[in-house]
């Protein structure tokens, strides 16, 4: 039950994250890709909605698993979609 609930909450969030990472304007700009209109607001809602639902249900264990899995997935997607070096000169060079 915990497994089912946490995974079904995580799935939409992970998909939303994947979309956000894929269409992320800053990432695309750095990679020299065209950044079309990103339907970000909808994706953010899809991302956060399962968390809100779990809070409403009082499913705290599932909430923690959802949050953990989603943030691990966000990191993995960012790593996976890392942009190879381009000639594009970055204006703010680290700090």
């Amino acid at each position: 039950m915990t497994l089912l609930l946490s995974l079904s909450a995580t799935l939409p969030s992970v998909l939303a994250l994947l979309w956000l990472a894929w269409r992320d304007p800053k990432r695309r700009r750095t990679a020299g890709l065209a950044s079309g209109p990103a339907v970000r607001r909808l994706a953010v809602i899809v991302l956060l909605l399962p968390g809100a639902a779990l809070i409403a249900l009082g499913a705290w264990a599932e909430l923690l698993i959802w949050a953990g899995l989603s943030s691990a997935a966000g990191w993995l997607f960012t790593q996976g979609l890392a942009v190879p070096g381009t000639a594009h000169r970055s204006a703010h060079h680290g700090r």
């Binding site: 956000l20 990472a21 992320d24 800053k26 990432r27 750095t30 966000g74 990191w75 997607f77 960012t78 790593q79 979609l81 890392a82 942009v83 190879p84 070096g85 970055s90 060079h93 680290g94 700090r95």
Partner: peptide, 22 residues
Amino acid sequence: RELFTLRRRRDLLSARDAHVVA
């Protein structure tokens, strides 16, 4: 804004990105 940006080059900038993103 930089949540998804990780530049993969062998330099300081990508080292910074790797640390900051994670």
